[in-house]
Computed example of a mutant assay.
Amino acid sequence: MKRSFQSTVYIIFVIVTFIALAKSFMVYENPFNLYENPLVWLALIGFILVLVLKEVVNTLAVKRATELQNEKDGIVPEASNVWIQKLLKSWTKAKGIEQEEEIVLDHNYDGIKELDNSLPPWWVYMFYATIIFAVVYLVRFEVLDGDNQIVEYDKAVAEAKAELNKYRATATDLITSDNVVLLTDAKDLGRGKAIFNLNCASCHLGDGGGSIGPNLTDEYWILGGGIKNVFNTIHNGGRDGKGMIAWDKTLKSADIAKVASYVISLQGTTPAVAKAPQGEKWSAE
């Protein structure tokens, strides 16, 4: 009775959980996207783990019950891990306890004796492998004068830069300080304002008047004004050792262009508290 009740509860749990997961998957446009919907994946993994653990517990319980019944009936089952023991023995060549008298060394110190076991084959093979590696390494880098790690690194960096330049030359949607343009669309500026309030207002204030960072509403710029300079400053950061961090690892290039355009739109506005001008007066060429 108890077992049938547990089975019924388990079946109901599986069915209800499966239906709930199926409905939750239907809510999202891309339910299997791990980055967009991590909770869906966590629920799915948790559900699978419950099923697996249930089967593991059942298997262990059946195995334990069989062992107890065999013990009660006086049945001694054959060891199931004989092959493991044979494998370990072949890879260690260690003598068993009953054979240790054959390999006891003659010297005795305070009643302590030492066994003369052979080295494990796996250890010997690894030692031979290190010798072969050393010979190959010696010939490769000392005799044949192969590239060392520094030369290989420089070549890899040069290849990566060449690939990056090739990508930049062919990518049509890649925004850099060379091809960025001032955005004036209300939707783009709205996105730029949202990014500014989230990441920049803590140092420049919400109206751009400046606090820790400089005033963004006047004509003076530390690293140059204009959309290209502002984009480059946000992308690569301010002056070394001080100033703003680089945001290229946090923001996409398109978002940097939008927030840079929003910063430019603050020119000529009147903040509540304006910080004193910093840098040099900027005039577009």
Rank of each mutant, 00 (worst) to 15 (best):
I175E: 10
F25V: 04
L183E: 13
L34E: 04
D207I: 02
V157F: 10
G210I: 01
G190P: 13
A186E: 14
I15T: 05
G146Q: 03
F133L: 06
G224I: 02
E71M: 06
W247Y: 15
Y28H: 07
G268F: 10
L44M: 12
A272T: 14
I245F: 14
C200S: 00
I222Q: 15
D188C: 08
N70T: 00
L34H: 09
V143A: 03
K155D: 04
A194K: 04
K89R: 13
K113A: 11
L88S: 07
V263E: 01
F32E: 09
I84W: 10
A257Q: 09
F32H: 06
L60F: 15
S253V: 04
N81H: 05
G237L: 01
Y153S: 13
V76L: 07
L87W: 08
G146E: 08
N229Q: 13
V50I: 15
E152L: 11
R239K: 12
L119N: 12
G268M: 10
G208M: 06
I48R: 05
I103K: 13
K166L: 04
D116S: 10
T217L: 03
V104G: 07
V151Q: 12
V16Y: 14
D110M: 08
N117M: 10
T170R: 10
K161M: 11
F127M: 06
L164T: 09
Y128Q: 04
N81S: 09
I195E: 01
S265T: 07
A158F: 03
E114R: 06
Y262A: 00
V104S: 02
N232Q: 15
T59K: 11
V135H: 02
E159S: 05
I212D: 03
T8W: 05
R168Y: 02
W221E: 07
W282P: 00
G224M: 07
K155I: 07
E29H: 08
E98P: 00
V104E: 02
V263M: 10
A61R: 11
V57D: 12
I212Q: 09
A43Y: 12
G74Q: 02
G225L: 03
S90N: 11
N37F: 06
D110L: 12
E280C: 06
K228R: 11
E67I: 01
D73K: 03
A171K: 10
I245L: 15
G226W: 10
Y137G: 00
A160Q: 08
W122I: 14
F196L: 04
V151H: 06
V273I: 15
K252L: 14
G225E: 01
L115H: 10
N179M: 11
N148H: 00
R3D: 14
I195N: 01
L34I: 13
I75T: 04
K95R: 13
D110W: 05
V135Q: 00
E67A: 04
A246K: 11
F141Y: 13
S265W: 01
A160L: 11
K89Y: 03
A22S: 14
K95P: 08
A169H: 02
C200K: 00
V230P: 00
I75P: 00
K95C: 11
E159R: 08
V124W: 08
D188G: 07
P38F: 12
K242T: 14
